[in-house]
């Protein structure tokens, strides 16, 4: 067990290093010049050159990569230039470890941007997660138990309709029609949970519904299929033959087996949305990780792009790992090797 965890952690580190190298290779080969973004209209080539040098964009890619990696464990300064440090120390931004770089366009440390964005993404993700698990799994179990009835057909069809609606279309529809035109739902917006939990929830309702809809539809189908499969298993017959009441056959025997695989899928999906729900955040104009990434891409803000992609990959890989541990814990037949 301990060995397994160690092995997995090492492979996670290896994976992240690989991802960071590919991201650097891909994005620093970009034709756009990041130094060009450092100054406004009245720019002279000399200033650009000076800034390029000050920000380290004139160094070879490999050196830039190593600097970036070093920043994860030790502090950096932007610009990292002893001359500027001496002449005008107030223009130096100090970046404590773990340092993800400095966004010139935003004039901010990337780690600060991420720190601001993550609670928003987490709020959207966790709320939507609860919604789609409760709704999706609940309806899935119900439709499996009501197999062959009109209700089941209706639920299954509805789930396919919901599944076919593109997320941004649902979001735009809710935003423009339900919220703006008819005022049936509070406008979306982020209030920190600790400041005002009610306002927090109100501002999140539409994003939650938007993000949860497609997932819920998917989970209805997964849950239903798993439940039907499980209900035809021999051990369900055994439970009935033992005289176990029907509710306990469903809850203790069938759902225990049918929902265990759902837990792993749910874990992976939660990791996926925690890594940024770009469309939902963009539709509702919430500055989470996803929207930060999209904006950075539009601005060619390389340090932010790299940081967001790496962070997202990290969350995804981490959740993969946690889910594997969880599955081994939930299914006694699985041994970690």
């Amino acid at each position: 067990m301990f060995q397994y965890i160690l092995k997995r952690l090492l492979s996670i580190v290896g994976m992240l290093v690989l991802i960071s190298i590919s991201v650097f290779a891909l994005f620093f080969a970009v034709p756009a010049d990041p130094a060009r973004l450092t100054c406004g209209k009245n720019c002279t080539p000399a200033i650009i050159e000076a800034n390029r040098h000050a920000l380290g964009y004139d160094k070879p890619i490999v050196t830039q990569y190593l600097d970036f990696m070093k920043g994860l464990v030790s502090e950096r300064d932007f610009p990292d230039d002893p001359v500027i440090a001496k002449n005008s120390p107030q223009s130096i931004t100090h970046c404590p470890a773990p340092c993800l770089g400095y966004s010139v366009t935003q004039g901010q440390l990337v780690s600060k941007m991420i720190k601001d964005a993550f609670p928003i993404t987490a709020s959207i993700a966790v709320g939507a997660f609860v919604l789609w698990i409760v709704g999706g799994v609940g309806i899935g179990v119900l439709s499996a138990l009501k197999r062959g009835t009109l209700l089941e057909r209706g639920l299954v069809s509805a789930s396919l309709v919901a599944y076919s609606l593109p997320t941004f279309f649902i979001g735009l529809l809710l935003l423009n029609i339900v919220s703006i035109k008819y005022g049936l739902a509070p406008a979306a917006g982020y209030t920190p949970f600790l400041d005002d939990p009610v306002a927090w929830a109100q501002g999140m309702i539409l994003p939650w519904i938007t993000l949860a809809m497609v997932f819920a539809a998917l989970y209805v189908r997964l849950t239903r299929a798993n439940m039907l499969e499980t209900l035809s298993e021999d051990y369900i017959r055994t439970a009935r033959a033992k005289g176990v009441p029907e509710w306990a056959v469903i809850a203790r025997h069938a759902m225990r087996a049918a929902l265990t695989p759902i837990v792993t899928i749910a874990g992976l999906d939660l990791g996926g949305v925690l890594a940024g729900a770009a469309i939902t955040e963009t539709v509702f104009n919430l500055n989470g990780i996803g929207k930060t990434g999209v904006y950075a891409i539009q601005q060619l803000d390389l340090p932010v792009i790299v940081a967001v992609v790496l962070l997202s990959a990290f969350v995804i890989v981490l959740f993969n790992f946690v889910v594997d541990l969880l599955y081994a814990f939930l299914d006694p037949r699985v041994t970690l090797r």
């Binding site: 021999d234 051990y235 017959r237 225990r256």
Partner: peptide, 11 residues
């Protein structure tokens, strides 16, 4: 039952 492996709950 015939096949005790599938007739017993694996979890």
């Amino acid at each position: 039952f015939q096949d005790p492996l599938s007739a017993l709950h694996p979890y």
